[in-house]
Design a protein around this nucleic acid. Sequence first.
DNA 1: ATAGTAGGTTACTTCCAGTAGGGAACGGTA
DNA 2: TACCGTTCCCTACTGGAAGTAACCTACTAT
Lengths: 212, 212
Amino acid sequence: MTSAETRTERRRRMPRADRERQMMTIAEAVFSERGYAATSMDEIADRVGVSKPMIYEYFGSKEGLLVACIRQVRTELREVTAQAVIGARSPEEALRNGLVSFFRFTDDHRRSWELLLRTETAVVGPAAVAEIETARQEQIQLHIALFSAYMPNAEQRSLEAAAEILVGACERLSVWYVRHDDVTPEEAAEHIMRMTWFGLRSELEHPDDHGA
Amino acid sequence: MTSAETRTERRRRMPRADRERQMMTIAEAVFSERGYAATSMDEIADRVGVSKPMIYEYFGSKEGLLVACIRQVRTELREVTAQAVIGARSPEEALRNGLVSFFRFTDDHRRSWELLLRTETAVVGPAAVAEIETARQEQIQLHIALFSAYMPNAEQRSLEAAAEILVGACERLSVWYVRHDDVTPEEAAEHIMRMTWFGLRSELEHPDDHGA
DNA sequence: ATAGTAGGTTACTTCCAGTAGGGAACGGTA
DNA sequence: TACCGTTCCCTACTGGAAGTAACCTACTAT
């Protein structure tokens, strides 16, 4: 088992597209488990079973790799939420459907979602920040489209502010949500609805006004 | 001007407390202008006019320096907002006062605030993340205390969720806010009030119900 | 004047992102 | 089958920045 070993253990060549997917999967896992800063490219290369320059060949830089991971999550999230709101019969229903699908998404893709949540802006450089900001903007645009369909008289600025608030609320509640295993996506969505749709005022005035 | 130079240009010794403040001030500026990751300790040392080991002597690590900066902002913010809500005569007033003071704070300490906003979690390591999370928790506790005073029958979990939502909303709206120079703190606070106090529903039903 | 301490420095080590400069397997063509 | 270009892949390096060891110097109190 001297030379046979090296020959049989030889790592297989792989088409670029496959290798890229594999790299992204592993990178996502390692980044979100150990943290971006604490992860070295050598480690990812090791786990992939390939040498470091390959990753640079395909993704250009460490940040490039991160951006690719984020972009994938972002795209999925956009499609899921956009799907969820179509066909709703009222603004309330549209909002609730969107929220439920959002929290379901964070459940189903917990690891990817944490990567996105935890990958904020200071350390990574402009590209990754921009990528996350794009994810938010996509959600914001979705909300604005939603709101303006039902509130055609509202000022543009108010719509923007409302959308930003909603996105911030979701982002933050999702952090709380992943810490509470016994909360369902529907319940999480309901918390947001109570606050942003019915308003805190209604809690004081008639604590059981809204459904469930 | 051979030896005279080195003698007269000699940098002054400074008591530790003063030097620490100076280092933090400069670090805060450099971090927030160039970004944490892109800033080298040598550069900060240069600007301070001191050698790198001094910073390590006082703050232990690059992250330690960052944490010190964040902690200061956090403390100020806590005091400002806590002050703002005392003496309010209704929950609505308390909430609005807190919000206005928050947005005023982001105006007055724009650079520090951006550092805190932009210093999220991926790259920096656990200590800095914890520090920022503490800042959020302080605001969350303040909100919970506020809510529970007026809504004694609500479930603890709902209070928590409401507080998280509010903090997320503020955090996100502050990003939007710093991009819009012509928005006042009062207007920003009002956007949050509309959403979280009156609720979106009220915008649809009677678009001009609430004040201004 | 002098010993002790607080404030300060130079010159290093280590670690990691990123790169130069190849090599080997595969597909097509003759 | 032998050739050739392309795609996939490697070893071995460079450079820069975090962090440290070891030493120095100005001030302070007695």
